[in-house]
Computed example of a mutant assay.
Amino acid sequence: MEEWKVWPQAGLEQTKLSGGELDSFFRKIYTRHQGKTITFLCIGTDRSTGDALGPLVGTKLEERGMTAVVGTLREPCDAGNLKERLAAIPPENIVVAIDACLGAPGSVGYYLVSEQPLQPAQSVGRSLPAVGHYSVAAVVNVKGPKPYWTLQMTSLYKVMQMADEIAAAASASVGE
């Protein structure tokens, strides 16, 4: 596994994983926090192909029977409601933040995982609070000069594939 710092100004160290390596990340979280509620905070909107990753993951987790999920296609958790959705999560819960991001060409299709909070909307220049005890940033496309346009033009197939991988790894690790 390759160490890769995406947000060095925030001091967030992340590890770049393939979809097949995600299960070990989630297994570590479940093992470390046995008996505690793990809430999945799935950030994004259903109004942008690239940014729909979070709500897609949340919906897929609910379909797999997981109940501690914030952010689905029906009720997205986005920049407009993030603070109030965070306030509704019990403070004793362990939060895994999941969001799409833009990155280097060689990182598209990979996941940047961390045992630290996620800084949502940074790739599009927004300033939102850091969220989560753990984070998964899915690199859905290449970072460029027009991030909103890039997210709009991101492959729905790629986003769906990545959402499936995250949901499968997170739900499979629950019982282990």
Rank of each mutant, 00 (worst) to 15 (best):
G35E: 13
M66K: 08
G65W: 10
G80V: 09
L61E: 05
L53D: 04
E62Q: 15
L41K: 00
I89E: 04
L102Q: 05
A104S: 15
G71S: 10
E92R: 13
A97T: 08
E62F: 02
I89C: 05
M66D: 02
R32L: 13
I94W: 01
R64Q: 12
L41N: 01
Q34L: 12
P76E: 06
P90N: 09
G44F: 01
G106Y: 09
M66Y: 15
T67F: 05
L86E: 11
T59N: 04
E63Y: 01
H33E: 09
N81M: 08
E84K: 14
C42Q: 02
I98M: 06
K83R: 14
G109V: 09
I43E: 03
I38N: 00
L53F: 04
S48P: 07
G65S: 12
G103A: 09
P76H: 04
R32Y: 07
R74I: 10
V96P: 00
L61T: 05
V108A: 09
I43C: 06
I98R: 02
L61H: 00
G35T: 10
S107D: 13
L86A: 10
I43V: 15
D78S: 12
T39L: 06
P55H: 08
T59H: 04
V108P: 06
P90W: 09
P55V: 07
N93W: 00
P105D: 11
D99V: 05
G50V: 01
A52R: 06
L41Q: 03
H33N: 12
G58L: 02
T67Q: 14
I38M: 02
